[in-house]
C-alpha cells in the first residue's frame, strides 16, 4: 500500500532562553541556551490513505508538536517527515485571518497563502459560504465575529481546499451543536473518500467513533500503535495508575 505520511526517527527539541535576545548569539555559536526540552524522541510511523489515526496522550506528551511537524508548521531537530499530498491543518483555526477583511475576503487572503490560486478559491467560495452559515456576517469584517464564528470560517477553508491529509488538533468542538454535527459529517465524508486523517483529542468517545488506528504518546515516545480499543485501554490504565 502506498504511504501518504512517512515519519522516520523524528526528534524535536525545544530550546528555551532566559532572555529573548540570546537567540542571536545562540544561532551563531550554539551557546547561550538555558535549557532544552525534548518534546519528541525517535518517532517513526507510516500512514496510508484511508487511515484515521487518533493521537492520544496527556497534555505535554507531544501530540501538538507531532501534528505541527507533519503539517510543516515547525521543523524537526533531526529525522524526517515526508508527506505526499496536500495538507489541510485544523490547527489554530482562527489564526492567520486579517481582522479588517470580511469573511469572504479572508477566505481569499488565507487561501492565497495556503497556495490556492484565484480560480481554485472562486470554485470553493460558494460551498464555504453555504457551509459556515454566517449569513450577512460573511461580508462583514472578521473583527466583529465571535470566536466561534472565526473558527468556523477556518474550519471550512481547511476542509474545502480538498486536502489529501487532514490534521485535526482538538478542534472538533468548533461552534455550536449544530455546526459540530455538520463538521463531524464532513470529516466522516472525507474518511469515506479515502483521505488520511490525523486526529488528536482528549475525548475517548470521539476517538472511538472516528478512528481506525490509535497512537498513544507518552513523554515524547510512541508507547502504543495499533487497535483503537486496546490503545484507549492502555491510556486509561496509565491514567488510573498515575492517580494512585
Amino acid at each position: 500500500m502506498e504511504k501518504i505520511i512517512e515519519v522516520k526517527d523524528l526528534n524535536k527539541t525545544y530550546y528555551l532562553f532566559d532572555k529573548e535576545y540570546k537567540v542571536i548569539p545562540w544561532l551563531l555559536t550554539g551557546k547561550g541556551c538555558k535549557s532544552q526540552k525534548e518534546a519528541l524522541k525517535n518517532i517513526s510511523f507510516q500512514v496510508t490513505p484511508g487511515e484515521i489515526v487518533g493521537i492520544i496522550g496527556v497534555n505535554g506528551a507531544g501530540k501538538s508538536t507531532l501534528m505541527k511537524l507533519i503539517a510543516g508548521i515547525t521543523y524537526p531537530t533531526s529525522g524526517e517527515v515526508n508527506v505526499h499530498g496536500r495538507i489541510g491543518s485544523l490547527i489554530n483555526l482562527s489564526a492567520g485571518f486579517h481582522p479588517d477583511y470580511s469573511g469572504r475576503k479572508n477566505i481569499y487572503y488565507k487561501g492565497t497563502m495556503m497556495g490556492l490560486s484565484q480560480e481554485q478559491i472562486d470554485n470553493i467560495i460558494e460551498d464555504v459560504e453555504a457551509f459556515v452559515e454566517l449569513g450577512e456576517y460573511f461580508d462583514r469584517p472578521i473583527r466583529m465575529y465571535s470566536a466561534g464564528m472565526a473558527a468556523r470560517l477556518g474550519f471550512a477553508l481547511a476542509v474545502f481546499m480538498e486536502p489529501e491529509i487532514l490534521i485535526v488538533d482538538e478542534v472538533l468542538a468548533v461552534g455550536d451543536k449544530k455546526f459540530q454535527q455538520k463538521s463531524r459529517e464532513k470529516i466522516l465524508e472525507m474518511f469515506q473518500n479515502g483521505k488520511a486523517v490525523l486526529f488528536s483529542s482528549h475525548s475517548d468517545q470521539l476517538i472511538e467513533e472516528f478512528c481506525n488506528r490509535v497512537l498513544y504518546l507518552k513523554d515524547g515516545c510512541i508507547v502504543f500503535d495499533g487497535e483503537v480499543k486496546e490503545g484507549l485501554c492502555r491510556y486509561n490504565e496509565d491514567l488510573r495508575l498515575q492517580k494512585k
Binding site: A71, G72, I73, I87, S89, I91, N92, L93, A95, G96, F97, K110, M113, M114, G154
Partner: peptide, 10 residues
C-alpha cells in the same frame, strides 16, 4: 505574520 506562521505551512 505570527498567526500565519503558526497555523499553516508558509
Amino acid at each position: 505574520g505570527k498567526g500565519i506562521i503558526q497555523s499553516i505551512r508558509f
